Amino acid sequence: MTVESDHNAPAEETLEKRPARIRQLLLRLRDQRPLLTVSFRGRSDQFGSMLLGVDIERGELSFDELTPTDGDRLVRLQQSFQVTGQLDGAEVRFPVQVRRREEQDGFITYIAPIPDSLRYLQRRRAFRVEVPARPECPVVMSNSDGDWFEGVLVDVSISGIGFRVNKQLADGLERGNRCDCHIDFPDATVETRVEIRFNEPVRDKPFNRLGARFLRLEASDRRQIERFVFQLQRRQLKNEL
C-alpha cells in the first residue's frame, strides 16, 4: 500500500511513552501490513520489511526478512535498526533492537522487544492512495504446479502488492510460494515474479487478504506501477479540492 502526505501541511510529532498506547499502535501496524522502511546507523541505503507479529504476553515483536536480502548481513552485524512506517496517514518511527534471529523452512524472522517509546508524526492533512474498487484491477497468480488463482488488486507499491482472493482458493497460496504474477492495470499490464508473504482471512468476508513481494521487476514494469500510483494520487487530490 502506498501512503503519501501533504508535506506543506503542519505536522505534529508525539513521543509516545504510554505502554498501552504503544501496544495499540503496533497492533494496528501489524494488522494493516504496510511496507516498513528499515535504515541502519551510518548507512544511506534503505531496506523493506513488515511487522509480522506482536506478542503482548512476551513483550516481543517479529519482523519479516529484510529486502533486499543483503540487509540480513547488516542485522547480524549491528543487531539494531530504525523502522519507519505509515499508519492511517501518520508516520510511525521507532528503534528495533534485535533480540534473536530465527530461521525456519527458509524464512528469516527477527525478534525484538516492544519499544519503550515511539515517535508518531501526524499531519493535519494526509491521504492514503489505494486501488479503487472500480474499475477492478485483476490479479492472476500461477504457482509451480501450474495452478491458477484469480484475485483483485487492493494496493500496490514498488516493493509488492496486496490483493484479495476467494477463501476457497486462498489455501493454494501459502506463505513462501513463488508465483508468476499477472496484473491488469487500466492502461497497462505487468507480468512479473512474486513471493507470497502473508495470507489471512478477512473477518465476515468471503475472501482472504494476501500480500506478495516482487522478486524481480523490470524497469518498464516499475515505470508502469509508478505511473499508476501517481495517477491515483492526482485523482484523490483532485477529489479533495
Rank of each mutant, 00 (worst) to 15 (best):
M1K: 10
E4A: 13
E4M: 12
A11S: 11
T14I: 12
R23M: 11
Q24F: 08
R28F: 00
Q32L: 15
P34E: 05
T37D: 09
V38I: 15
V38T: 02
S39F: 07
R41L: 11
G42R: 08
Q46M: 07
G48E: 06
M50A: 13
G53R: 14
D55C: 02
E57M: 03
E57I: 04
G59E: 06
S62F: 04
S62N: 03
S62P: 00
T67V: 10
D70R: 00
L74I: 12
L74D: 06
L77D: 05
F81Y: 14
Q82I: 13
V83D: 07
E91I: 15
V92L: 13
F94H: 02
V96C: 03
V98W: 04
R99G: 01
E103R: 03
Q104H: 05
I111R: 06
S117G: 14
R119N: 12
R119D: 12
Q122E: 11
R124V: 08
V131H: 02
P132E: 08
P138Y: 06
V139D: 13
S142D: 12
D145K: 15
D145I: 09
G146W: 12
E150G: 01
V154L: 06
V156N: 00
V156Y: 01
S157V: 07
S157T: 13
I158E: 09
A170F: 01
A170S: 09
L173F: 05
R175Y: 03
R175F: 02
D180Y: 08
H182E: 14
V190T: 15
V194M: 04
I196Q: 03
E200P: 01
E200L: 09
P201S: 02
P201N: 00
K205V: 03
K205D: 04
F207G: 04
R209F: 12
L210N: 08
F214T: 09
L215Y: 07
L217N: 08
D221V: 07
E226V: 15
E226Y: 06
E226A: 09
F228G: 02
Q236I: 14
